[in-house]
Design a protein around this nucleic acid. Structure first.
Length: 617
DNA sequence: GTAGGGTTAG
């Protein structure tokens, strides 16, 4: 199925070739084209890639580095009369585009000081800089300065501020601002205002309200566009609500006649990849390549590279990279980060390392994500010294370790039992001003439990108290597993009961861990009771749960329910894992389990195990 | 001359 994806991409190359190029021939030996014709062809080619009819840039827009910008600014401020406000705005914008937000603000302040003309364009750029630096409050202060300068803030300014609030996760304030604009008729929201607000709603999982806002904008006479639809479609895809995403996609294309673009398709392909629905991925890719307007780009390809890597198909990911190159596109650091991560996932550290070392020769600079993947690979292969060495390289290369970097190191250190070193890393992380998140917290609790420090884990858990960190089902599952593995089943039970009180829904893993704990203490009746509760609670047991319960029965030499469980597994198309299978075979050999069950057991052996395990027939 | 959407890591 994945191979089909590749063949569609290859077909695309041929498709493009067939449509636009003459039959293949050696251009040097060709008599069909005169040198002029070739020149003309290359000119035509360059025209199609240039900025379709854009005006030439002014010297203020062309600045390429900060020194140049400051020199030009100094020169401008000395001229009399002062240059026009348009030129100042162009320079400010060029500096902002280079992401030198703080310098851009300095220039803006200097303009104000020397009495240079400042209008809504300049203020809008300055506000954008504040927001990009997560200083939206400073942006609002600049809004106040609009009123002092008798500049009427326009929809660009409000949209930028709204986006700043969304970026800072200040969703309630964003909603208040949005409503205020409408109610007080301060400024009529346009499609950008709506799409920004919709993005904020989606960010917090309010897809339904986002769709409501999409309807509202239509009613208020603001026509939804591709960006608005893309924002919601992407959010639905990320929430694995792919059917709803396609519903919206169909509405957009067929009912509203809004053209989808490469971003629409990329979001849908990403959503399908996450659900391993490869056939549909191929279908969409085919649709994309057949429509010349929406040909896949580097981000689309990167999603495919990443999907192949996550499936462990590094070879096919490399084939996609070949296609990227054949199409004349350039693989970037994201492409290689996925590939390196894929190698690490398979424990192929030599290959991961050599890919990492080859980045420079490709003109690519490793970023903190590159390092995190490699660190994770070393930690998972228990090569902690190599991980430590790499960790120190991060700062030497002028990069900053982030919360993921530290979490990865903590996990690695706990895994090799170096709890003291883990503690030091944790303190260093805090000293760097990094706040542990749910994942870091889970890693620490898990690490403590696995290093016989369940008491420590529990006291940390109680110390943290009622918070977002402790309202997480993963955290509970870790503690329940830790407590029951250490024979503290009472604590595990209490934690499990807490879930209902907190309104948290146990997942399959939580149930399985609890069933396993009960089995470990020989409490088969209670384990079976909980097991039966799973279906009722809408969380049916999976293959692992069945294997855990079966092992519990076999260990206790309780064979009454074994056949029934095996039959249920068959009905649900589940399979036996290697250790349950080996226990069953031992029991049959010993005569405790009836040989008549062999046929059923044979059906429950996964195909890939058939080659390696001899199952008596 | 100013604003909004898609990719990688624990």
């Amino acid at each position: 199925m994945m191979a089909r994806t590749i063949s569609h991409l290859r077909a695309n190359i041929r498709f493009k070739g067939d449509s636009f190029l003459p039959p293949l021939q050696n251009p040097l030996s060709s008599s069909r084209f005169s040198p002029h014709a070739t020149l003309l062809a290359s000119l035509l080619h360059s025209i199609s890639f240039s900025n379709n009819g854009d005006r030439p840039q002014s010297r203020y827009q062309k600045v390429t580095n900060l020194d140049h910008a400051f020199n030009l600014f100094d020169e401008m401020t000395q001229r009399r009369p002062l240059p026009s406000v348009v030129h100042f705005a162009q320079l400010l914008n060029a500096v902002a585009k280079m992401k030198h937000f703080s310098s851009c603000l300095d220039l803006f302040k200097q303009m104000c000081l020397i009495g240079a003309p400042v209008n809504e364009y300049c203020i809008s750029i300055a506000i954008k800089c504040c927001c990009q630096m997560s200083r939206t409050n400073d942006g609002f202060a600049l809004l106040a300065s609009c009123f002092r300068r008798a500049v009427v803030p326009n929809v660009f300014i409000f949209n930028t501020l709204l986006d700043g609030l969304v970026v800072e996760n200040r969703i309630a304030e964003a909603e208040r601002l949005f409503k205020k604009l409408i109610k007080q008729k301060i400024c009529e929201p346009n499609a950008v205002t709506y799409s920004t607000m919709i993005k904020g709603l989606c960010k917090f999982g309010n897809n339904d309200i986002a769709i409501g806002l999409l309807r509202l904008m239509d009613e208020r006479g603001c026509k939804p566009n591709t960006v608005v639809y893309n924002t919601i479609i992407d959010s639905l895809c990320k929430a694995k609500m792919i059917e709803d995403a396609f519903k919206l996609f169909n509405e957009m294309v067929f009912a509203k006649s809004i053209q989808p673009d490469v971003i629409t398709y990329t979001s849908l392909i990403h959503g399908l990849c996450n659900l391993c629905r490869w056939d549909e991925v191929s279908k969409l890719l085919k649709e994309m390549v057949e429509d010349v307007r929406i040909s896949p780009d580097i981000q689309t390809f990167n999603i495919l590279v990443d999907a192949f890597c996550k499936e462990g198909r590094v070879d096919e990911a490399e084939a996609v990279i070949d296609i990227i190159v054949e199409r004349g596109e350039v693989p970037n650091i994201v492409t290689y980060n996925s590939l390196i991560d894929g190698c690490c996932l398979r424990g192929e550290m030599t290959k991961a390392r050599s890919l990492f070392d080859s980045l420079t020769s490709k003109g690519l600079v490793p970023n903190v994500v590159t390092y995190n993947s490699l660190l994770n690979g070393y930690c998972k292969s228990l090569k902690i010294e190599e991980a430590m060495h790499l960790f120190h390289e991060i700062t030497r290369k002028g990069l900053k370790p982030c919360i993921v970097t530290y979490s990865t190191m903590l996990q690695g250190l706990f895994r090799v039992g170096r709890c003291g070193a883990a503690r030091k890393f944790f303190d260093e992380m805090r000293a760097q001003g990094l706040i542990p998140n749910e994942c870091t917290y889970g890693i620490i609790l898990d690490g403590l439990c696995n290093n016989h420090q369940v008491e420590e884990a529990l006291s940390l858990f109680h110390l943290v108290g009622d918070s977002k960190l402790n309202s997480n089902i993963v955290v509970y599952t870790i503690l329940i597993e830790g407590a029951s593995k250490c024979g503290k089943l009472d604590i595990a039970r209490d934690l499990f009961q807490d879930l209902t009180l907190k309104g948290l829904q146990p997942n399959v893993r939580t149930y399985t861990v609890m069933v396993s704990g009960l089995c470990g203490e020989g409490l088969l009746k209670e384990a079976k009771h909980l097991f039966r509760k799973m279906d009722e609670s809408g969380c049916p047991p999976n293959s692992v749960t069945y294997n855990v319960l079966l092992q519990g029965y076999l260990k206790k030499q309780n064979y009454d329910d074994v056949e029934m469980l095996l039959q249920e597994m068959d009905g649900r198309r589940y399979s036996l894992d290697a250790s349950t299978l080996s226990m069953l075979i031992d029991e049959i050999a010993a005569g405790s389990v009836d040989r008549s069950m062999l046929k059923l057991i044979g059906k429950l052996v996964p195909k890939e195990m058939m080659d390696t395990t001899a199952v008596p027939r």
